[in-house]
C-alpha cells in the first residue's frame, strides 16, 4: 500500500517534470510543424547556463531566469538563422536539428566535461515534508507538481485568452491563411520558438535540481518528450499533460514492481496509443 502510494506520487512528480519539458516541444510543433530534435540540447544548455548563473550569483532562482534566457536566445538563433530557411520542409528541418543537437552535445562536453553537476536548491525546498502513510516526501518533488500546474494554467490562459494565443491556435489550424490575413509569421514563429525554448531552459534547471546535469541527458529528455507528445497528441498542451502523466506513472510503477521491464512500458503505451489513435490521444490530423 505504502509502496503503491509512493510509486504513484513519484509517477505524478516525474510526470510534472516531463510535462514542463514537453510543453515547449509541443508548443513549437503545434505552431510551426517543426519537429525540433534539438529540444534535448536546449534542455542541457538551459541547465548548464543556469548552473553557471547559480554558481556565480549564489541564487537558485536567478538560475531559472538564466536558463530560460540562455535557452531562448539559442532557440531563437536556431529558428532565425537555420530553420526559417527550410520553412515547410519537415524532413530537412528534422535532419538539421539532429545535426545541431550533435554539435551542441560536443560543444557542451568540451566546455563542461563529463562530470555530473548538481544545483544547491534553496534550503526550504530541500529535504522532505512529513506526510501520512508514506512518512516523508521530498519537498522539491512536491514543488515540481505546483510548478507544473501553474505552468499548465499559465499556458492555457495564454493560448485561450490572449490575442497571441488566438494567433497560435490559428497557426495550428491554417498557417497560410494566418499569413494571408496580415500576421507577420516570421515574428510570431520567432516568439513561439523563444517561448518554447525558454520553457525547456527552465525545465533544464528544474529537472537538474531534482536529478542532475550530465552529458546524455539531452537525448534522454528528447526521447521522453517525443514519447509524451506522441502519446498525448502533437501540438496539444492538454495532450502533453495527459501523455506526461501516463508515461511518468508507467515508468515509476514499473520501476517499483517489475524493474527489469520498466524501460519497455512507456514504449508499449506509445505503440498501443498509435495503434488506436494514430494522432495521439488529443491530437488532430495535420
Amino acid at each position: 500500500m505504502k509502496l503503491l502510494l509512493l510509486a504513484t506520487m513519484n509517477g505524478v512528480t516525474l510526470a510534472a517534470l516531463y510535462f514542463i519539458v514537453a510543453s515547449g516541444f509541443t508548443l513549437i510543433f503545434g505552431m510551426m510543424r517543426v519537429v525540433n530534435l534539438a529540444h534535448g540540447s536546449l534542455y542541457l544548455i538551459g541547465a548548464y547556463i543556469g548552473y553557471d548563473v547559480a554558481s556565480v550569483t549564489g541564487y537558485w532562482f536567478l538560475a531559472l531566469f538564466g536558463g530560460a534566457i540562455g535557452a531562448a536566445l539559442v532557440g531563437v538563433a536556431m529558428q532565425y538563422f537555420v530553420l526559417d530557411r527550410y520553412q515547410g520542409q519537415d524532413l530537412r528541418q528534422a535532419l538539421v536539428t539532429i545535426g545541431l543537437s550533435l554539435i551542441a552535445a560536443d560543444l557542451l562536453l568540451a566546455r563542461y566535461g563529463g562530470m555530473t553537476y548538481q544545483f544547491e536548491v534553496p534550503e526550504f525546498l530541500y529535504g522532505s515534508v512529513p506526510m501520512p502513510i508514506v512518512g516523508g516526501y521530498p519537498t522539491f518533488r512536491l514543488a515540481l507538481i505546483v510548478f507544473a500546474i501553474a505552468l499548465y494554467v499559465g499556458l492555457w490562459l495564454l493560448v485561450q485568452r490572449t490575442r497571441f494565443g488566438i494567433i497560435i491556435r490559428a497557426g495550428v489550424d491554417d498557417r497560410q491563411m494566418l499569413g494571408a490575413v496580415g500576421i507577420n509569421l516570421t515574428r510570431v514563429s520567432t516568439l513561439v520558438f523563444a517561448l518554447g525554448s525558454a520553457l525547456v531552459g527552465v525545465a533544464g534547471v528544474v529537472g537538474s535540481s531534482a536529478l542532475s546535469i550530465a552529458p546524455g541527458e539531452d537525448a534522454r529528455y528528447l526521447l521522453s518528450s517525443l514519447v509524451v507528445v506522441i502519446v498525448g497528441g502533437m501540438g496539444s498542451i492538454p495532450g502533453a499533460a495527459i501523455g506526461a502523466l501516463l508515461v511518468g506513472l508507467a515508468e515509476q510503477i514499473g520501476l517499483a514492481y517489475f524493474p527489469t521491464y520498466s524501460v519497455v512500458i512507456s514504449f508499449v503505451i506509445m505503440v498501443a496509443v498509435l495503434a488506436w489513435r494514430p494522432y495521439g490521444l488529443l491530437g488532430r490530423p495535420a
Binding site: 509502496l3 509512493l6 513519484n10 516525474l14 520501476l255 517499483a256 524493474p259
Partner: peptide
C-alpha cells in the same frame, strides 16, 4: 535486492522499495 536498469535517473520508486 533491487536491480535498477542502467541509465535510470529517477530512483525514487527504487528507494521506496
Amino acid at each position: 535486492k533491487i536491480w535498477v536498469p542502467n541509465g535510470t535517473k529517477d530512483f525514487s520508486s527504487s528507494i521506496a522499495r
